[in-house]
Each structure stands twice: as C-alpha cells, then as structure tokens.
C-alpha cells in the first residue's frame, strides 16, 4: 500500500488535470469550490494541525487576498497576477503585525482573539473608499472556468507539497513540538515565537492566494463575503475531519465533505444543512482523530476502532 500511494496520487492528479475536458460545467464549478476549500483547509492545517493553534483568523487572509486582487484590478488597473501578489503582501504584513501579539495567547484565548480580528477587518474594509465601502467591488469578467480550475488545482498541489515538506522538515517538527508542549519546545531551544509567526504567515499566504483566485472567479466581493467566518469554520471542520497534522487528510476531508454537502443540498435542499451537521457529529463520535487516523488503525482493530473511540472519549 505504501508503495502504491505515490502511483495512485500521480494517477489522481492526472485525472484532475484532465477533468475540464471530461466533465461538464456544473461539475467543474463544484470542483473549483472544493479545491479552494481544500487549499484553505490545508492552510489551516499548518497553523491549526501542526502548531496546534486553532485559528479563526484564516478567513481574514482569504479576505485580504480577495481585496488584494480586487483593489489592484479595479482601482489600479493592474493585471491579475500582480493582484495576487498585492494580496500576499497584505497577508504577510497582517500576519507579521498581528501574529506577534496574538500568537502569545494560547488555547481558547487565541481562538477568541482571531475571531474578533476577523470582525474588525470586515468593519475596516466596509469603511475604506478604495475597497468600495459597504458596496464592494465588481471585478472584470473572465469567463474561463477551465483557467480558474487549473489555477485552483495548481495552488492546492503547491499547498500540499509545502505541507509534505513540513511533515519531514526540522521546521515542521518544531511546530509539532509546540503543539505537544510549548514550554518544553522552548526549553529544547525551539524559537517558539518565530516558528508560530512563520506558520501563521505561511497559512496566510496560501489562504490569500485562494481568496484572490476566488474573487476573480466570482467577479464580485463585499466585506461580508470576503471576511466570512463560516468559511473559517468550514476549513476547520474539513481539516479536522480529514486528520489535522497529516499531509493528505485535509484534502481528502475537504473533498469528501464538499461532495456530501453538494449531494445533500441537491437532494434535500432546505434541510440539507441539518443532515450535514449530523454527518459531522457522527464522524466526530466515531473517529475523533480524523480520517487519517482511521485509515491507519481500522485495518488493525476493525470495528473495535470505533468502539474504542466512543469509550475513550466517554460519548
């Protein structure tokens, strides 16, 4: 199985690259969304899964990336690529400026602070003339789902490769040490502040690129949709469902949950979110450590795996 995995992955990536020439427009639009969510989940994985900091601020980076592209293209008449770079610059500045104070907080306090920050950003952008205030900005129209699809796919592959590198690098090991015991990591000579800020920045860059692509694709952004907290909740659910701290977990989690959510809303429409919630609850009860853990342990202990989880977490 271990040896098959790379072959399998290359096969899947090949099929995904060829998808626009195989599938219809509805599927491609669904896929663009799913790829974007997977990239966001992968970004969250760096700060939340590896470093163990449950960030509610990743949707800020998504918004900054969106506004970077929108402001650059609409107000300054710059090309899309430059817009992406502008978004990344916004995000890096934000991550460095806010990461240093906010990453001093731990646990719930970090979550609350990032939550508040995303509200603040939304308020700031709805008062900026250059960002179109409350009304938002309308971007030039580019009707090419294939282009957006391939761009999103490329970004997800880059994000996953970064996480793969993280999982075997000294930097990644330092982040895991911070997650396991931050004081101990510090006493072992890990520069915890620098590592946390770097992880936050890296997650921010990926989220902001996803936001930039999304803004150009949707062609319209306003403060509420750009700094949407429910998007942040989605990336956490997907990353945790897939297996935080793993390489492929968040991607598989995002793909599966996007599929389930789409399937439910097309068959059940109005009560879809109720069933979606049910799926999450059952998943959390049966495999609280995510799909990756289940994938590794289910072949050994079979259905005892689920019973063990229920017992261990006293559910």
């Amino acid at each position: 199985m271990k040896r098959l995995l790379p072959v399998l992955l290359i096969g899947v990536v090949g099929v995904l690259i060829a998808l626009p020439w195989i599938a219809g427009p509805t599927l491609i639009q669904f896929a663009i969304n799913a790829l974007m969510l997977a990239t966001l989940a992968q970004g969250w994985n760096i700060i939340g899964g590896f470093a163990g900091y449950a960030s509610f601020g990743n949707s800020i980076f998504f918004g900054l990336g969106s506004y970077g592209v929108a402001i650059a293209m609409v107000q300054w008449n710059l090309p899309f690529g430059v817009g992406l770079a502008v978004g990344v610059v916004f995000s890096v500045v934000f991550a460095l400026a806010m990461g240093v104070p906010v990453l001093r907080l731990r646990g719930h306090y970090f979550a609350i602070a990032t939550l508040a920050l995303s509200q603040v950003m939304s308020a700031i952008f709805s008062n900026l003339d250059i960002a179109g205030r409350n009304i938002g900005l309308v971007l030039p129209l580019l009707r090419s789902d294939t282009l957006f699809y391939e761009l999103s796919l490329a970004l997800l592959i880059v994000a996953t490769l970064i996480v793969f590198w993280l999982s075997r690098s000294r930097f990644g090991f330092g982040l895991i040490a911070i997650r396991e015991n931050e004081d101990a990591a510090q006493s072992m000579g890990v520069n915890t502040t620098r590592y946390k800020v770097l992880a936050f920045t890296l997650a921010g860059i990926l989220s902001s690129l996803a936001g930039g692509i999304h803004a150009y694709w949707i062609t319209f952004i306003d403060p509420n949709s750009a700094f949407d907290l429910s998007l942040n909740v989605k990336m956490i659910i997907m990353a945790v469902f897939g297996g935080p701290g793993s390489v492929l977990g968040p991607v598989i989690g995002a793909a599966l949950l996007s599929g389930v959510s789409e399937l439910l809303s097309s068959t059940l429409s109005s009560v879809a979110s109720l069933f979606f919630g049910l799926v999450i609850v059952i998943a959390v009860i049966l495999m609280p450590k995510g799909l990756t853990d289940c994938w590794l342990k289910f072949p050994v202990s079979r259905w005892h795996y689920f019973i063990h989880n229920i017992r261990q977490y006293r559910l």
């Binding site: 000294r170 090991f173 330092g174 895991i176 040490a177 396991e180 015991n181 004081d183 101990a184 990591a185 006493s187 072992m188 000579g189 890990v190």
Partner: peptide, 25 residues
C-alpha cells in the same frame, strides 16, 4: 540545558522522538 520541573515531555510523541527533540539544535 535544563531538565525542567514537572518533566515537560511531549506526551503524544514516542520516547525516541522526545529524545531526538533534545538534539533539535
């Protein structure tokens, strides 16, 4: 180098991984 009060191990890591963390730098 400190052996911190209360041990401060990386609980979820294996013993060997903990030891290797000591050689982090």
């Amino acid at each position: 180098v400190q052996v911190p009060e209360g041990r401060m191990l990386f609980d979820q890591m294996s013993v060997q991984e903990n030891l290797l963390m000591g050689a982090y730098r």
